[in-house]
């Protein structure tokens, strides 16, 4: 496969803070690559270095063979960038914003008008085409910002937290659009806080924590070690601490972890028998509320690899990484 991004030991230091530390990875043409990490992990700083908006303290990156540090303008021609905030012009209408963005890439007058209309149609924004951007809802702003990012049909698209802080319906629509763009051949570099979003959309994912990539692999490979796991989650009202130690003795084939004192998660390589387990918990003094089987997901891999809980990721959703 042909590489479109080659990042080699990219590092960025702001005064005493090492924001990005020796980040190395390749992105191949046609891939949808996810950069998954909590607030402050270095996701946005990495994007800024890859797009020429920040200078690496160390290391470099090539965009389709072009050194971004040495020839930023040649590299920027190949990319579309959707930042983590909707940064179009509030005083222009949706249509005018898209036409203006197209002009930055030298598109001809008629060509940019046609492309703008097509994108407004594609993003379901036709009805708001002549309204000023400042009057748009958050979800509409996000959609128009993505449309502006692909106005010049770039082969490579950077999406920084595209669904953060918007309503569920818009987020779902944006995910479908990302998927469609990927299917049409656009290479996508996506940063997100949302584990499910990364799992659903990406071909390959890198976990980034404290500026370092700690795992980078295809989603199927990440899920491989846990795909045959059986997980049972039991909610208890009280008594989880005492029950946990007795379960470990009675069912040594299960691994147990208790989250927030109220959710016990049992994991095994064979089917977990629910009734004996609940009976034992109740006999140990735990007050069981409910039990449900869980399909192993990327969240489990993420927790194992990073040591971070999903909640820690989700709580940082409004921050920047």
């Amino acid at each position: 496969m042909e590489r479109i991004i080659a990042a080699e030991a990219l590092s960025k230091k702001f005064n005493d803070v090492q924001a990005v530390d020796q980040v190395t990875f390749d992105l191949f043409k046609g891939e949808l690559f996810g950069f998954l990490g909590p607030n402050g992990a270095g996701k946005t700083t990495t994007i800024k270095m890859l797009t020429g908006l920040a200078r690496p303290t160390d290391g470099t990156a090539w965009i389709d063979g072009v050194d971004i540090s040495k020839e930023p303008k040649n590299a920027q021609r190949l990319m579309g960038v959707v930042p983590d905030e909707s940064n179009l012009y509030p005083e222009l209408t949706g249509f005018e914003n898209l036409v203006f963005c197209a002009s930055l890439y030298g598109m001809h007058r008629e060509e940019r008008r046609i492309r703008a209309r097509d994108l407004l149609d594609m993003f379901d924004l036709n009805a708001a085409a002549d309204r000023k951007f400042e009057t748009y809802s958050k979800g509409m702003k996000r959609k128009l910002t993505i449309a502006a990012g692909i106005i010049h049909n770039p082969p490579l698209l950077f999406l920084d937290e595209p669904t953060t802080g918007i309503d569920v319906a818009s987020a779902r629509q944006i995910r479908t659009m990302i998927s469609d763009l990927h299917n049409s051949g656009t290479t996508i570099f996506l940063t997100t806080h949302y584990i499910e979003e990364a799992e659903r959309l990406c071909d390959r994912i890198a976990f980034i924590v404290d500026g370092r990539i700690i795992r980078n692999a295809p989603v199927s490979e990440l899920l491989q070690p846990i795909k045959n796991d059986h997980i049972l989650e039991i909610s208890v009202l009280s008594g989880s601490e005492k029950a946990e130690s007795s379960v470990a003795e009675k069912f040594p084939e299960y691994t147990v972890e208790t989250r927030a004192g109220q959710t016990m998660r049992f994991r095994a390589k064979t089917t977990i028998a629910v009734a004996p387990l609940i009976n034992h918990l109740e006999a140990s003094g735990a007050e069981v509320l409910d039990a449900r089987r869980i399909v192993p997901s990327l969240e489990d891999v993420f927790v194992q690899v990073t040591g971070l809980e999903k909640a820690e990721m989700e709580n940082s959703r409004n921050g920047k990484g």
Partner: peptide, 10 residues
Amino acid sequence: ASFDRLLLSP
């Protein structure tokens, strides 16, 4: 941040 859009143009 709309100026970044201009800085990113070729």
